[in-house]
Amino acid sequence: MGADPSLSGRGLRWFEALTGLEGLLDGGPRTVRVADSRLGEEIARFIAVVADPANRFPRARQGELGLEEAWTLARQLRRTVAEDLGARARAIVAVVDVSSQAYGRREELLGIHLACAAAADAYASARLAGHPIVALLVGKAMSGAFLAHGYQANRILALDSTEVLVHAMSKQAAARVTRRPVEALEQLGERIVPMAYGVRAFARLGLLHGLIEGVNAAAPGADDIERVRRELAAAIDDARAGARDLAARLTSPAARETRAASIAVRRRLTEQWDAP
């Protein structure tokens, strides 16, 4: 089958580069790839969601996170937790390049919201069980797909590349919903940081553990791969040493500036929590 130019192959490329494996699961689907690979001093479990133009669900053929992708993520994560019960909890690396959740009539009927919740639940549960989880953004990290695959990680790393995009909705859909032309949305993103799509703007929100600069994100060489592996290993060590919740996302200098309101809400809520 010829490569569909509309499909981003970055997720698969980085998954294979970091693990040296295809990661195909027995019994499929071909869209969820899982493999164990050495990272620093330990073996980490890598998980990616990739495009399959022959996906049996037609609305999940372009790298979207569909029903089977989301439930399979949940299964693989829960198996990882079960396998490590009573032993050292393995590090988990989510390789993120997901264009969106699957948009479709079947998907809504069959509960795509629950499927994505199950994946988010499984990531959060693995984190609470002590698995250090690092999300590595190599391409798109969009909307509900990112909520289900990556956003529950202890630490988020991203490649500094113009094609690494983070947002709540695709530009076309956002333009239609807000009744603005795409160009106007892009201009707005330059002024309103959380409205921007690019990863450099996202870094200013203080949610990233690190932005990995100077790496060829589209066609990584051996040095690039080695560099990213070192960053992943360091982020895993940092996650193991830190709390199991997401509080670290509010502590960076960038978060203190851009997410000042998020911090103020929590501070004042704590003050008022117990009756005076």
């Binding site: 919740a117 990112f146 909520l147 956003y151 529950q152 947002h167 709540a168 909705m169």
Partner: peptide, 21 residues
Amino acid sequence: VRLQEANLGLAAIAEIHSAIV
């Protein structure tokens, strides 16, 4: 997500999910 606050709404929702679990 409130689209005018896009990525900060999405981030808050991830934190809500985490807290519920």
